[in-house]
């Protein structure tokens, strides 16, 4: 059953990782554009997206959120013009060139600003709003209080990452390939993990045509926070299915909350995964001590 979310209700946006997830009970999905996406989600060619939209019964957002090199601009312009003709709900972007191309060419494309880490305050989101970008993806690196504070101080629609494993590093270098070359070993794995003895967490690391990406090894589980997000009229909650085996169960649980049918949230949340809140209740620190000339 599709969640019956009205305009004023929070919606689920599923960050798709497998085409089979397309028919899960969510209002909207986010797909990456092949070679132009930096999120850990399914990537499709523009023609494949076009076909998918033909069967559309939900909102479809496209992520074109990698940082763009100069020699990719022409292709990008063609893609954006094609996307304008498709019935998509919006484009997630990070690189400012996308805003500039859309604006200069008067393209009728709704934009969602924010890479994974920089939409951390309402002043910046409101600055984008005044430039015509009326939606932002909120960073998963901030607290629940900060998220609510943003929502209460902006007219922009906000997308809040609430469940799953989200990207924490992106590089234009091929770090796994370089290392394997250095140690003269081969690996057929498309996906690797890194772990450090003091962390005891396996962080997924993979390469694509743009370079290397590292994903948080802990599943953010914000099911219990849903009532608060709904009360504060968060527009979209983002659920990333990346290497999550029970995504249907997760989606069902979130739909139940949206429909006001769950009382025992903590119990259900624990069934889905470790009840890891990542930064929802933990502020990062940055002033560690006074001057420490470590030569870095």
């Amino acid at each position: 059953m599709l969640t019956k979310s009205g305009d004023n209700m929070s919606k689920i946006c599923l960050m798709l990782n497998n085409i089979n997830e397309f028919n899960l009970k969510v209002d909207s999905i986010l797909i990456g554009l092949k070679n132009f996406n930096s999120l850990n989600i399914l990537e499709l060619e523009i023609e494949e997206i076009e076909k998918l939209i033909e069967d559309k019964n939900k909102e479809i957002f496209i992520s074109i959120n990698k940082l763009i090199h100069n020699n990719e601009l022409e292709e990008l312009k063609i893609i954006l013009k094609k996307l304008e003709g498709l019935n998509i709900s919006g484009v997630f972007f990070d690189d400012i060139s996308i805003y500039n191309i859309v604006k200069e060419n008067n393209l009728n494309i709704s934009l969602i600003w924010g890479n994974s880490h920089q939409a951390t305050n309402y002043n910046t989101i409101n600055s984008w709003n005044r430039l015509g970008v009326k939606n932002s993806i909120i960073s998963p690196d901030i607290t629940l209080e900060e998220i609510i504070d943003i929502k209460n101080n902006t007219e922009s629609k906000v997308f809040v990452p609430i469940y799953g494993m989200f990207e924490i590093f992106s590089s234009n270098r091929f770090l796994v390939k370089n290392y394997l070359k250095y140690i003269d070993k081969n690996s057929d794995s498309k996906l690797h993990y890194i772990n450090h003895k003091i962390l005891d967490t396996y962080y997924p690391i993979y390469e694509d045509s743009n370079g290397t990406h590292i994903i948080n090894g802990n599943i953010l589980n914000g099911l219990e926070e849903m009532p608060k997000l709904i009360d504060n009229k968060i527009d979209y909650v983002l659920i990333n299915s990346y290497i999550i085996s029970n995504i249907e169960e997760v989606i069902d649980a979130f739909n139940e909350v949206l429909n006001g049918k769950i009382d025992n949230l903590n119990e259900v949340a624990l069934k889905l995964s470790d009840n890891n809140k990542v930064f929802l209740y933990k502020e990062t620190i940055y002033k560690v001590k006074s001057s420490d000339n470590d030569g870095k």
């Binding site: 880490h117 990062t284 560690v288």
Partner: peptide, 25 residues
């Protein structure tokens, strides 16, 4: 020294040590 990640797009420090890379830590 070089950031090996794309500037502003690396929060390894936040996630592995709770020190905020994008706010000077």
């Amino acid at each position: 020294a070089m950031c090996v990640g794309l500037s502003g797009r690396c929060v390894l420090s936040n996630y592995m040590t709770n020190r905020d890379s994008n706010r000077g830590g």
